[in-house]
């Protein structure tokens, strides 16, 4: 593990400031509030797509900003999203054979 080779200040150059992180957290909190509101307010036909879209936005925001993927080397994104896309692909296909999607 040649961790010592990596300069320690490297990642902060690309990360956000404290205020930036707090702003991201506030947006995440707001989206969560909106998500929870679907439990009380009837969104009609928008219910399902709205929830899924908000879920994806929150997911991507945490991965991109809190986990630095947006600022980091593309190789990391490549490794992680390969796993994610593979998982979504095979499991949706498997669920489809059970007629899960209608």
């Amino acid at each position: 593990m040649n961790t010592t080779a990596a300069p320690e200040s490297h990642a902060t150059e690309h990360g956000l400031s404290t205020a930036g992180y707090v702003r991201i957290a506030l947006i995440l909190a707001a989206i969560t509030g909106l998500e929870v509101s679907t439990y009380y307010v009837d969104f009609g036909r928008l219910f399902l797509p709205a929830l899924l879209i908000m879920m994806v936005i929150k997911f991507v925001m945490v991965v991109s900003y809190f986990m630095h993927l947006k600022f980091d080397n593309k190789v990391f994104s490549w490794l992680f999203y390969t796993g994610l896309i593979l998982a979504v692909g095979v499991y949706c296909a498997a669920l489809a054979t059970f007629k899960f999607f209608g």
Partner: peptide, 19 residues
């Protein structure tokens, strides 16, 4: 790659956790 071994390994691990 100039990237850290540990970090590469960690991201790969997280990719596998998705499955």
């Amino acid at each position: 790659t100039g990237l850290s071994n540990v970090k590469l390994g960690m991201w790969l691990f997280l990719g596998t956790e998705c499955l």
